[in-house]
Structures are given as structure tokens and as C-alpha cells.
Simulated assay, not measured.
Amino acid sequence: MKKNVWLFSLLLFTLILSGCGQSIQDPLNWELEEFTFTNQENEQIGLADLKGEVWLADFVFTNCTTVCLPMMANMTDLQEQLKQEGLDVKIVSFTADPAFDTPEVLKSYAQNYGADLTSWHLLTGYSSETIDKFAIENFKTIARKPEDQDQAMHGTSFFLVDQNGVVMKDYNGLKPPVDDIISDIKILAAEE
């Protein structure tokens, strides 16, 4: 009888410890470089402003006729689900077409999707060369607008960034695994 109580206690203790030590599975650990760009309110937003926050990032542009439409709809839906879960998560969308996407254009675009702009920054105010280099070096993705085309090329991932400005995970932005994203955000939020 004492042996069974001891085994049960050991098992219970092990389960409690394993629940406390959750961490992101296979983190990317890509440190972001400092940046400061202009959001849809004509405010300067940079990495320093996002320190201490868990945030999601993606690359889109307003004249996109293909992947941006489902990506924006998916991110808006995800934003709503995060609110329902009581999770305070910022969203940062970098435009891949900064020459066209002014703050005003970005604001109107996001409003058409019903985005809550109190926690969503749509960024512009840089050159096409700057965002392409920034995307490759920091998010390992492209954000390139060929000069002779009206469509930009960009990745379709959603990126999870921790409170220290480190990219922890990337997810398919066309079919986001919402439960996994929420679970990973909860893990990061618990580490605060």
C-alpha cells in the first residue's frame, strides 16, 4: 500500500513539473535587428516599442490579388480569437509595396477587413530594397516588388515573435493552425 501511494505521489509530482516547464517546440530563435517604420496612423513604430510584447508578423500589400486576401482575413480572424482567449497580442504587418502603401492606404485596407487597429500596426515608410533586405535577414522570407510589375512577391507565413524580439515560430498564413498559435502564445505569455 505504501508503495502504491509513493508511486502515485511520484507520478503526480512528475506531471506537475512537466506542466510547469512548457516551452515552444523547435523554436527558430531568429533575433530581429532594430527597426523603426511608419504605421497606419503616421506614427513611428519600432522594435523598441514592441519589447515586452508577444506579437505576430506577416508581409502583405494592398494591391495584392492573390495570397494577401486570405492572409488578411485569417489574421483578422486570429486577432478576434486571441481577444476571446484574453491574450494581449500585437500584430505587425510589413507592406511589400511601400511605394504605393501609404499609411492612409494601409489604414483603409485594414478597416475593410474589420481589423482592430488598436493592436495592429501596418508598417510602411521604407524603400522596396530596405524591406526586401529586412525580410530576408530577419524573417528568412522575401518581400520584393519587381520594378516592372504591379504585384510584389512575399512569403505567406505568420511569424510569432517573443517579448525580446526573437522570432520563435512560423506558421502557414494561408491555413493557420490557430490552436497551435494560441497554445504557443500562451506559453510565451506564461514566461513573462
Results as ranks from 00 to 15, higher is better:
Asn164Ser: 15
Phe35His: 15
Ile24Asn: 07
Met71Ile: 04
Thr14Ile: 06
Glu104Tyr: 14
Pro70Trp: 04
Ser119Met: 03
Tyr109Cys: 02
Gln79Leu: 03
Asp116Val: 02
Leu69Cys: 04
Lys51Asn: 11
Val92Glu: 00
Gln81Val: 03
Val60Ala: 10
Leu82Tyr: 06
Lys175Met: 00
Ser93Thr: 10
Ile182Thr: 12
Gly165Asp: 14
Asp150Pro: 09
Asn112Lys: 11
Ser128Phe: 12
Ile24Asp: 05
Asp101Cys: 12
Ile142Arg: 11
Leu78Glu: 04
Met75Tyr: 07
Asp180Ala: 14
Glu129Leu: 14
Phe13Cys: 13
Glu33Met: 09
Asp184Ser: 07
Ala48Arg: 10
Thr14Val: 11
Gly52Ala: 12
Trp120Asn: 00
Leu50Asn: 13
Lys83His: 06
Phe8Gln: 10
Asp148His: 09
His154Thr: 12
Phe8Pro: 04
Phe8Leu: 05
Leu15Cys: 06
Asp49Ile: 11
Ala190Trp: 01
Gly46Ala: 09
Leu123Glu: 03
Val161Pro: 00
Lys107Leu: 14
Thr95Lys: 02
Asp77Gln: 09
Tyr171Pro: 03
Glu137Asp: 13
Asp180Pro: 05
Gln22Cys: 04
Asp101Met: 09
Cys20Phe: 03
Gly165Asn: 07
Leu87Thr: 08
Val166Glu: 07
Val54Met: 05
Phe59Asn: 12
Gly155Phe: 08
Met1His: 13
Gly52Cys: 12
Gln81Pro: 05
Thr62Ile: 10
Phe37Tyr: 13
Trp30Leu: 12
Ile181Lys: 01
Phe139Arg: 00
Leu160Cys: 08
Gln151Tyr: 06
Val161Cys: 13
Asn172Val: 11
Leu56Lys: 04
Trp55Met: 10
Cys68Met: 03
Ser119Gln: 12
Leu11Val: 07
Leu11Glu: 01
Glu33Asp: 14
Asn4Ile: 10
Ala190Arg: 10
Asp58Val: 05
Trp55Leu: 08
Leu28Cys: 02
Phe139Trp: 05
Asp116Leu: 00
Pro177Asn: 04
Thr141Asn: 12
Glu41His: 07
Glu147Ala: 06
Leu32Thr: 15
Gln81Asp: 06
Cys64Thr: 12
Ile91Gly: 02
Met153Val: 13
Ser183Val: 03
Leu106Gly: 09
Glu147Asn: 04
Thr124Asp: 13
Val161Ala: 09
Lys169Cys: 03
Thr130Ile: 15
Gly46Tyr: 11
Val92Asp: 00
Leu78Asp: 06
Ala152Gly: 04
Asp148Val: 02
Glu104Asp: 10
Leu32Gly: 13
Gly114Phe: 02
